[in-house]
Lab assay of single mutants.
Amino acid sequence: SEEELIEKAEKLRKEFEFIWNGIRFIIRENADEIRRFEELLKE
């Protein structure tokens, strides 16, 4: 039914948001290391 689809979509959206926030947190935490690594690659 349509309601089930909406519920599934909402659940997926929440899971995606949770994963995305996790990725963003990891990137933020490691931003300095990532930048340093990029500098090494440029040399």
Rank of each mutant, 00 (worst) to 15 (best):
E33L: 15
I34V: 05
E15M: 15
A31T: 11
L40D: 01
R24W: 14
E33R: 09
L40R: 02
N30D: 02
I19P: 00
E17N: 03
A9P: 08
R13G: 11
R24M: 13
R24G: 12
N21A: 12
E4S: 04
R35G: 03
R36C: 13
E2G: 11
L40G: 01
R28C: 15
R13W: 15
I26D: 03
E10C: 14
I19K: 00
N30C: 15
I26W: 12
R24Y: 12
F16M: 02
E17R: 05
S1C: 14
R35M: 09
G22K: 10
K11S: 11
E17T: 09
E29Y: 12
S1H: 09
S1D: 07
R24P: 01
L12G: 03
F18I: 08
I6D: 04
E15W: 15
E38G: 02
E15R: 12
N30A: 14
R13Q: 10
E38W: 14
R36D: 06
L5E: 04
R28L: 10
E15A: 14
R13C: 13
F25D: 13
F37L: 08
D32H: 09
K42H: 04
I23F: 03
K11R: 02
I26V: 02
R28E: 12
E7M: 05
N21C: 15
L40I: 07
E33C: 15
K11I: 11
E7D: 04
G22C: 15
E38T: 14
E10K: 06
E10A: 05
L12T: 02
E17C: 14
R24L: 13
A9W: 15
F16P: 00
D32P: 09
E17W: 14
E29N: 07
K14N: 08
E17D: 02
E3M: 13
E4P: 05
F37H: 02
R36N: 06
R36H: 04
I26M: 08
I6N: 05
E15G: 08
E3C: 15
E4H: 06
K11Q: 12
E4Q: 05
E43Q: 11
I23S: 00
L40W: 12
L40H: 02
E17Y: 07
L5R: 03
E39Y: 04
E39Q: 10
R24I: 14
E39R: 02
E38H: 07
R36Y: 10
G22D: 04
L5V: 07
W20I: 12
E15C: 15
I27Q: 01
K8Y: 12
E38P: 04
F25R: 09
N21F: 14
K8D: 07
D32N: 06
N30M: 15
I6V: 12
E15Y: 14
F18N: 04
A31H: 04
E33P: 07
A9H: 08
F18G: 01
I34T: 02
I19L: 05
R13L: 11
E7C: 14
F16D: 01
N30Q: 14
E43V: 10
K14D: 07
F18Y: 08
I34L: 05
N30R: 13
G22W: 15
R36W: 12
R13A: 09
A31G: 07
A9T: 11
L12W: 11
L40A: 01
F16W: 12
E7T: 08
W20Q: 00
A9I: 13
F18A: 03
I27V: 03
L12H: 04
E2N: 11
N21P: 04
K14V: 12
W20N: 00
I27N: 00
K42M: 09
F16K: 01
F16N: 00
K14E: 05
R13P: 09
E3K: 07
K14L: 08
L41S: 02
F16I: 03
K42A: 09
K8T: 10
F25P: 07
R35F: 11
K42E: 04
R24F: 14
R35N: 02
I23W: 02
L41R: 01
R28A: 10
E10Q: 06
L12A: 04
E33W: 15
E29G: 14
I34R: 02
N21K: 10
E29P: 08
E7Q: 09
W20E: 00
E38K: 07
F25I: 03
I27C: 14
K11Y: 07
I34C: 13
F18M: 04
E29T: 08
L40P: 00
E4A: 13
E29F: 14
E17A: 05
W20Y: 03
K8M: 13
I19V: 07
F25T: 06
I6C: 15
G22T: 14
F25S: 02
K8F: 14
R24C: 15
D32Y: 08
I27R: 00
N30K: 06
N21S: 07
E3T: 06
N21E: 10
E43A: 11
E33M: 15
E7S: 11
E10V: 06
N21W: 11
I34E: 01
I26C: 14
I34Q: 01
I19S: 01
L41G: 01
E17G: 03
E39N: 04
D32F: 08
E2A: 11
K14M: 07
K11G: 10
L12I: 06
E43P: 04
I23N: 02
A31Q: 04
G22I: 15
R28G: 12
L40N: 01
K42L: 09
I34M: 03
R13M: 09
E15F: 15
E17H: 04
E3Q: 10
K42Q: 06
E3G: 05
F25E: 14
L41Y: 07
W20T: 00
R28I: 12
L12D: 02
E7H: 06
A9E: 08
G22V: 15
I27G: 03
W20C: 12
L40T: 02
K14H: 05
R35C: 15
W20S: 00
E39F: 09
I27A: 01
L41I: 09
K11M: 13
R35P: 02
A31R: 07
A31E: 04
L5A: 09
E39P: 00
F25Q: 10
K42F: 12
E7F: 05
I34W: 13
E4D: 08
L5H: 04
F37Q: 00
A9G: 05
